[in-house]
């Protein structure tokens, strides 16, 4: 399976995603420049973390106008698997590919720390082989997930919440919510399930040497789903 990792000016987790796809999960990976107008035939797209366009104006607000975004929109509509991590999630909400918005953290500071995640729906292309909980660090200033009541009800009703912040025991509590996200939401998918946005960084905990390897299951899940023909254009 071949992954394309988009490099916006200001992306800074593009090499990390590349490393994990290529060297941890053993798949093919290549970078996609933000000015490109085609996706070079990749099977999955990663919008990596970072500060695209400096996050000036609003996180992800300028990246949505990049030429490559139109291609990604088409790719997603055709059922291609897309994951937006951290800044990538912000870009997906700004581009309207996912509902809601990411607001400033409740504590108002940047937070870089491990987060325990409950896999809220383990039957998605991006979660299919994940264990019940994984550990994935957060590293953001604007990760407080917000959506109106109607949208939240829809997401919950359709099983579109992929990950929630939880404690070490897997319990979702107020204290385990690091940034004030509504419903402790850490990641959501689109209606079809092929587009995932998540604030935590699964690529940062994909190797035991870095503390924990459970993040790799997110990438292995989509590889499996792709092999099984459950996802892909």
């Amino acid at each position: 399976m071949r992954f394309g990792i988009v490099t916006f000016p200001g992306s800074n987790c593009d090499h990390d995603a590349y490393h994990v796809v290529k060297h941890v999960t053993g798949q093919d990976a290549e970078f996609l420049w933000h000015k490109n107008t085609d996706l070079s035939g990749v099977d999955a797209v990663i919008l990596p973390g970072g500060f695209s366009y400096g996050d000036y104006l609003r996180c992800g607000a300028i990246a949505r106008f990049s030429p490559i975004l139109e291609e990604i929109r088409r790719f997603a509509e055709d059922g291609g698997p897309v994951i937006g991590i951290c800044n990538g999630f912000q870009v997906l909400t700004e581009a309207g590919l996912l509902p809601g918005a990411l607001l400033r953290n409740q504590g108002l500071t940047f937070i870089c720390e491990d987060a325990h995640l409950q896999v809220a729906n383990g039957h998605l292309p991006w979660t299919g082989v994940c264990p019940e909980t994984i550990v994935a660090p957060i590293a953001h200033h604007d990760g407080c997930y917000y959506a109106d009541e109607e949208t939240l009800a829809m997401l919950e009703g359709e099983g579109r919440v992929a990950f929630r912040y939880c404690d070490r025991q897997g319990e979702v509590t107020e204290a385990s919510n690091p940034n004030g996200s509504l419903h402790s939401i850490a990641g959501i998918v689109n209606a079809r399930g092929n587009v995932l946005g998540m604030m935590p960084h699964p690529e940062r905990n994909a190797e035991a040497e870095l503390g924990d390897a459970t993040g790799a299951w997110v990438f292995r899940s989509v590889v499996q789903a792709f092999a099984d023909g459950e996802v892909g254009r």
Binding site: D16, H19, F110, A139, L210
Partner: peptide, 10 residues
């Protein structure tokens, strides 16, 4: 230090 991204670049 929780305000510093101390993990980026893996």
């Amino acid at each position: 230090y929780r305000q510093y991204d101390h993990m980026v670049r893996l």
